[in-house]
């Protein structure tokens, strides 16, 4: 048997378990998509993601091209008008969608990894480990997030990297609670017992039996983490924190406010980033509503 074949042989059991879990997830996805709210929610998310992916390539100008007249209302040359130094708002929106989503996605994935790790370890090992970790999580959940975010950002240099690190550190606690309670129920399943009796180590059980079964739950939470991160980023920008030169929805709103867009009645500058966040959040909430309706139905 070649080394490759050997590896395939040993990992086939893992893959079978993972495939079964994914198969189940696929079935419930089909069930889910029958709900009109799930359909509408997914469509909204896909529209925003689509804008984020193709936006930077189709943006008519560079967002930093200041050669146009400032404070122009929408026209055929500038469908979303121009801002206070004559930058094209449409280009800002298209590029900004990509940045907001990209940063939000990195934050969501790292927070999900951290939350899953803490949740699974606490749920699987129980006793003192569980107590200590969940105590810590409770404290993090009770400390008001936004002031903590502000104080951390005030001490870190104002770069996108700092924002990503700070938001990742602050976003995971809630997910870890969800993952922990799910792990507690998974732990009681017969196949986990079987794995334990066959002498598998804890790490392998977690990796090949528990994590694959948590994937759908993690996936849906990543969506909410992305929305949360996008909103938090914008909130930070409002306090003049984070990298204000970065082009994203938050900095669009920040510059609107800082440059007195209100006084110029510049509604064309205010609407696009807000609608972006709104559509993203409504999409995620519709989806979550459909998911909880489905889980309630199966429970009954």
């Amino acid at each position: 048997m070649s080394a490759n074949g050997q590896r395939r042989f040993f990992s086939s059991a893992t893959r079978r378990s993972a495939e079964a879990a994914l198969g189940r997830a696929w079935d419930s996805f089909h069930e889910l998509i029958k709900d009109w709210r799930a359909k509408a929610g997914l469509t909204m998310l896909l529209i925003i993601i689509g804008i984020g992916i193709i936006g930077p390539f189709v943006a008519p100008y560079s967002p930093f091209n200041t050669s146009f007249t400032a404070w122009q209302p929408p026209s055929s040359a500038h469908p979303f008008g121009t801002d206070y130094i004559g930058e094209d708002v449409l280009s800002w929106f298209l590029v900004g969608t990509a940045t907001s989503l990209y940063v939000g996605f990195i934050i969501a994935v790292s927070a999900a990894a951290l939350g899953t790790l803490v949740g699974v370890v606490a749920g699987y090992f129980g006793s003192i480990v569980d107590d200590a970790l969940m105590r810590f999580v409770d404290v993090l959940l009770i400390i008001p997030g936004f002031p903590l975010l502000v104080i951390l950002s005030a001490y870190f240099p104002p770069t996108v990297t700092s924002t990503i690190i700070i938001l990742s550190i602050l976003s995971w606690p809630f997910l870890s609670r969800v993952i922990r309670s799910q792990t507690l129920t998974l732990k009681q399943r017969p196949y986990i017992m079987a794995s334990k009796l066959s002498g598998l180590g804890s790490m392998r059980i977690i990796w090949r039996d528990i994590i694959p079964n948590l994937l759908p739950l993690i996936f849906i939470n990543v969506i909410f983490l992305v929305v949360g991160a996008v909103v938090a980023q914008a909130g930070l920008a409002f306090f003049g924190l984070g990298d204000l030169k970065s082009v994203n929805w938050g900095t669009m709103l920040y510059w609107f406010e800082a440059q007195d867009g209100i006084v110029y009645d510049a509604w064309w500058w205010l609407l696009p980033p807000g609608f972006g966040i709104l559509v993203l959040a409504v999409g995620a909430n519709f989806l979550s509503n459909a998911v909880s309706a489905m889980t309630n139905k199966t429970r009954r």
């Binding site: 205010l270 709104l278 409504v282 995620a284």
Partner: peptide, 8 residues
């Protein structure tokens, strides 16, 4: 309504 970003 609950999805409205409050700052917006």
């Amino acid at each position: 309504l609950s999805s409205l970003p409050y700052f917006w």
